[in-house]
Simulated assay, not measured.
Amino acid sequence: MTSAVVFAYHNVGVRSLKVLLAHGIDVRLVITHEDNPGEQIWFASVREVCREYGIACITPADPNADDVVARVAALDADFLFSFYYRLMLKAPLLATARLGAFNLHGSLLPKYRGRVPVNWAIIHGERETGASLHVMNIKPDNGALVDQQAVPILPDDTAQDVFTKVMVAGEICLDRALPRLIAGTATLTPQDLSQGAYFGGRTAEDGRIDWRQPARRIHDLVRAVTHPFPGAFADLPGGRLHVWRTRVVDQPAPAGKPGMLEFRDGSHTLYPLGGGCLRVLEADIDGGALPEQDLPLLRIP
């Protein structure tokens, strides 16, 4: 029976682990994370899946610690898989897998290597992304490709909408590739790294809106960082504005309106300095309802 050690977290980890089990893989150990009490946990638990299936599961702070590497090496597994695991796995760990170590990444590599690829793809206005199964090495997300599956990004899709699609795309990749990996017939295609770049993690402050951007760019930021993420925001004269959902309206800003949040006919519209306009579908100021009046988008000195 083909065997594996799995590093996994989040919904992607849950679904991918179940794909391995569906293919009869002997999962000898799962390494996951302790949930961060300061993080909103809106996703499924890998540890709960391990309890359900009777799989050994550990949550080391450092997966590359000598005792963890020794335990993984002693299992003599055929494969090592990483599914949305948040820490880098170093060379000694990767070398423990007899037939190779593989990672499932949430973009169409080589584009959007690195952190939070779904959010970055939306912020940049991409109309397509996907999942990539690739060889793991000591540099993140640059190993040879085993399989990829594309999904569309619709103009009003949020990060959670796209993440759900990418999760299914990853499941398809893994399900399709496993028979070839097990048989030793998988084709490994080197990445052309010049066709993409690395992107870093994001913080709540990265959701600050730049009103000099055009409406479409601001809309892309809003949908990329809306719930369950901290949201797009700006400090207005009336308090901190959080914008959770918008729609691009194909009309020019009226004279005198650029730089304003307008209230008219029972709804609010944003007119960024960068041009265009956004219908506000969900927003708040300091956690409360928007006032039924016009507001400037920038603080007046």
Rank of each mutant, 00 (worst) to 15 (best):
T32G: 10
T32M: 02
E34F: 14
E34Q: 11
D35L: 06
N36T: 05
G38L: 09
E39P: 00
E39T: 00
Q40A: 03
A44C: 03
S45Q: 09
V46H: 11
V46G: 07
R47S: 01
E48F: 02
V49C: 02
C50E: 07
R51Q: 15
R51N: 15
R51G: 15
E52K: 04
E52M: 02
Y53I: 12
Y53P: 00
G54A: 05
G54C: 03
I55C: 05
I55R: 04
I55N: 00
I55T: 00
C57H: 00
I58K: 07
P60V: 04
A61V: 01
D62H: 06
N64D: 09
A65L: 08
D66H: 14
D67G: 13
D67F: 15
V68C: 07
A70S: 13
R71M: 09
V72C: 09
A73F: 10
A74D: 02
L75Q: 05
A77T: 02
D78H: 13
L80H: 08
F83A: 03
F83S: 01
L87C: 15
M88L: 11
M88V: 10
L89G: 07
L89F: 07
K90L: 14
K90V: 15
P92Y: 00
L94E: 06
A95G: 05
A95E: 10
A95L: 14
T96K: 13
T96H: 11
T96D: 02
A97Y: 12
R98P: 03
G100K: 14
G100Y: 08
F102D: 05
N103E: 02
N103G: 04
L104D: 05
L104P: 04
H105E: 00
G106C: 10
S107A: 13
S107I: 03
L109R: 10
L109Y: 09
L109H: 02
L109M: 11
K111G: 00
Y112L: 01
Y112I: 13
R115C: 11
R115V: 12
P117W: 07
P117Y: 10
V118K: 12
V118Y: 00
W120K: 02
W120F: 06
A121N: 11
A121S: 05
I122M: 02
G125I: 04
E126G: 12
T129C: 03
T129A: 04
G130I: 14
L133Y: 14
L133I: 08
H134E: 07
H134G: 09
H134C: 11
V135F: 07
V135Q: 04
M136F: 08
M136W: 15
I138R: 06
P140Y: 02
P140Q: 13
D141N: 00
D141G: 06
D141P: 10
D141H: 03
N142I: 08
N142A: 09
N142H: 01
A144K: 06
A144Q: 04
A144G: 02
L145V: 11
D147W: 13
D147R: 14
Q148A: 05
Q149N: 08
A150E: 14
A150H: 10
V151Q: 12
P152D: 14
L154V: 13
P155H: 02
P155V: 07
D156H: 03
T158M: 07
A159S: 11
A159K: 07
A159E: 12
Q160A: 15
